[in-house]
Amino acid sequence: MSETLLEINSVTKTFGGFTALSNVSTEVLSGERFGLIGPNGSGKTTLINCISGLLQNDGGKIIFDGHQLDGMPAYKRTATGITRTFQIPRPFHTMTIMDNLKIPVEFVSKPGATQTEIADEAMHILETMGMAEKANQETAGLTQIELRKLELARAIAAKPKLLISDEAMAGLTGTEVDEVLEILIKFNEQGMTIIMIEHIMRAVMQFSHRVICLDAGELIAEGVPEEIVKDEGVERAYLGV
């Protein structure tokens, strides 16, 4: 049994009178492929915002790899080994693809390295993502799948222990979904723990070792994919019956 990498302990987040997360507790094991599902507005993105530091949780504790994350700004959390992608890709749009990747390499994974070393590292990641020939292209003309891959590549460039992928596959075709899955599984096999938020059930069920389901800010189910799809609460949350 591998050890706990991320511990989420009764995390609560409110926006004014609205409770977006209430007492959510779970843990992610080192090396795990962890699925996070739930209907729209159930708090998935809020939870990962609290983990990545874009939001601060109001109650509870988040412990990652021995670091207590509460109150820590997002950039420091990235330095401890958490990176994330965004649901709607947020490339650095005035830079080339290469320069996009150089940012996390320079600021996180290889601080103090020379420009040549940084460029080599960024190029290496682009190669593993099959995007090397686009290195000097601007981000403006990219297709959906390319934008998603850039978003992943940039997160991976920070050499995270934990990668949080926020709907990296939304809007992609079947074969493109497989392409992204393949990339994620490849990096997982190299030791990267991955949390995947996804609406595409096929993908998240095929990918995950373990899945949790949120509904209206509460954790309603936790288990292996086969159990989750049969869970009555999950069914009710999704179908509203």
């Binding site: 700004p73 940012i103 320079e106």
Partner: peptide, 25 residues
Amino acid sequence: GKLGRGLNAIKDNEEAAECMGVPTL
């Protein structure tokens, strides 16, 4: 320098920059 590259990332997308390890503030 690194400062300029970090500032450029902030200009393009501040939250993404922060999540990519840029100490934005």
